[in-house]
Each structure stands twice: as C-alpha cells, then as structure tokens.
Amino acid sequence: MAGSKEIRNKIKSVQSTRKITKAMEMVAASKMKKAQDRMRAGRPYVERTFAIAMHIARANTEYHHPFLVRRNGVKRVGAIVVTTDKGLCGGLNTNVLRLMTQRFREWREAGVEVDFVAIGSKGLGFINRLGGHIASSAVQLGDRPRLERLVGAVKVLTDDYVAGKIDEIHVFSTAFVNTMKQEPRQFRMVPIPDEVRTSAGELRGGQVPEGTWDYIYEPDARELLDGMMHRYVEAVIFQMVNENIACEQSARMVAMKSASDNAGKIIEELQLIYNKTRQAAITKELSEIVGGAAAV
C-alpha cells in the first residue's frame, strides 16, 4: 500500500482548493452582475460628456481653457494607470501594465518624462518596481469607489497640467468588451482628444464644424468651461474605474471557473492512480497468499 496514503492526502488538498476557487467564482459572479450594471448605467453620461467636450474643443472659444489647448513639444506627460487592488483575476493587470510599460519605454526614448498616478495597488507596486515617478495614488477603493478619493489623486496631475508642468495626461485602463473579453487601452484624456473609442469599439469624433463658431455662454464662459472641464475629468475617471471593476470581477469569475475545472480534472486523475495502486496492492497480497498456500 505504499503511496496510497499520500495520494489520498493529495486528493483531499486539491478538493479543498477547489472548494475555495468555487466559492471565489460564485462571489465574483454575484459582484460581477452589480459591477456591470453600474458600468452600463454610467456609459451614456460619459459618452455625452465626451461629445460635449469634443464640441467645445472644436469651437473657437472666447476663453481658452488649458484643457483645450494643445502644446507643441511634449516634455513631460502624466499617466493615470487603472488596475485592480487584488490579484487572481487572470491577465487583466498584466495586459494593461504591459501596454503601459511599452509606452513608458517609448516616452523615455523620446526624452519625455512621465509622472504616474496609480489607481489600484497592483499598478502601484508595478510602477514602483519599474522605477517610475509616482505623483499620487489611490488604492483599496473597494467595490464602490468614492469619487472624492479618485479626484484627489488625479487632481495632482490636472493641477500640474494647468500650471504647465506637464503637457499631456494619458489614461491606461481596461476596456470591457464582454464577460469573456477585456482589452487594455490607452487614450489621451487631456488635452481633449479629437476622437474617442466608444464602448462598442467604434471611433467617434466631434460632429460639429471646427473653429468657425462659438457658444452663447450664460452667464460666463470662464466659469462654465472650468466647471465643465472639471466635470469631464471626474466623469471619465469615475467611469474608467467602474469599468475596471466590472472587468476585474468578470476576469476573476472566468479565472476561478477554470481553476475549479482544472482542480476537478486533477482530482479525477489522482483518483484513477489511487484506484490502480489499491488494486495492485490487493492483487499482490492475493498472489502472495496463493503462492504461500501452494508452498504448503
């Protein structure tokens, strides 16, 4: 019976691992539903905010908000990196961090310095190891992030931008395609881009003519545009983070499901080996008895 005890122990340990992954799968599945609903509910608002921001960028405004002005010779950029706080969610963070690392190298080769804002502890740890300069961070946000904490972290960059210390702000995050598929993406948040990719993956640009018109402002252009640009940053960041949470829960559910499936397969294989060794031991004992009887 050599080895059969070890195999039994092994089966037990894999079984308890499967229990854990199964439980995590179910927790992720229930959180995923809520996270996806929240993300979908926020989409129309963000899309309209983008549309209006792009309209404003195309207008010949009397007051030039810094977010609307493109600067020549980009020397320093801000990068907001949205990742999860916890692991066990497949390649979600790896993918977005790989994209970020690529761009980081390109920027460095071009002599552009980068200030990072890390949202999520996975990104924070990674950027630290990479040796990037972290301007601020927001971690341990939970399932329902509070806008104040996000805005606080991002404000460091927008203030630097307005002060002229950095020339562009980019966002790295994960786009939710469907439950099985999430894609890393990067886009320039500030200055306002010409076109953005919608959640459906299509490019959408401003639909108004460029440069030849202006709004009527009631009451004051400066105040209104300041308020709107502030709102734009808030809405975009909040949606990116919510989308990332939806991605996280979906990816975790899928990852845990495949872990549970794999555990099941291993248990089956181990069970087969266990049965075989047990059979072999019995056969051996029997033949020994038979052999012994024949000798007598």
Binding site: I56, D214, I216, Y217
Partner: peptide, 15 residues
C-alpha cells in the same frame, strides 16, 4: 432663467 429651445437654435452652453 428659463430657456425655450426650438430646432436650429444657435449653439449655447449653460448651467
């Protein structure tokens, strides 16, 4: 003040 908007209104931005 209250705003009434008909089609083909000139661009306007307000709170």
């Amino acid at each position: 003040g209250e705003l009434g908007i008909y089609p083909r209104h000139t661009p306007l931005f307000t709170q």
